[in-house]
């Protein structure tokens, strides 16, 4: 079973809320390859058939976040972090709908930390 989680801030919440209002059902897919690799792509859910080639690794304000099944395993144990970045008057060639808001959803990641209950923790070693 995949152990991946997705974290995001208020800017992402606001963007996703706005896009849901504008486009209805949307999905986030982790794009890959060639000229704009490894970026979340936001599409109308009616535009992209996900099928069994993708797995859902989390939800962003109830919008499913998919990663291709063949790549998903390499994300095991990682926290995916989303943030919003302004495009500052430039244009992005991806077909992702967030570009039309003048921003782009970007991906970061941090190593998954397993929370160990206090009672199971070993005693701290004595400080030298």
């Amino acid at each position: 079973m995949l152990n991946v989680s997705v974290e995001y801030d208020d800017d992402v919440k606001e963007l996703i809320r706005k896009m849901k209002e504008k486009y209805g059902d949307i999905i986030i897919i982790l794009g890959h390859g060639c000229c704009s690799p490894t970026e979340p792509q936001i599409y109308r859910s009616s535009d992209f058939i996900v099928g069994s080639d993708y797995v859902e690794v989390g939800r962003v304000e109830d919008v499913p976040f998919y990663i291709e099944r063949n790549l998903a395993e390499s994300y095991n144990g990682w926290v995916l972090t989303l943030r919003v970045e302004p495009l500052n008057g430039a244009v992005d060639d991806s077909f992702s709908l967030d570009v039309l808001e003048g921003v782009r959803l970007r991906l970061g990641f941090k190593k998954f930390r397993i929370a160990i209950p206090k009672e199971l923790r070993m005693n701290e070693p004595p400080s030298s």
């Binding site: 794009g31 992005d92 060639d93």
Partner: peptide, 28 residues
């Protein structure tokens, strides 16, 4: 010229286009 999400998307869907030749990101 223009963003993929508008210009690219509309061009690809346009009913008067016969062939789409694309180089770029795989999910696109």
């Amino acid at each position: 010229y223009g963003p993929g999400a508008t210009v690219g998307n509309e061009l690809v869907r346009h009913p008067k286009i016969d062939y789409v030749s694309f180089t770029g990101e795989t999910t696109t």
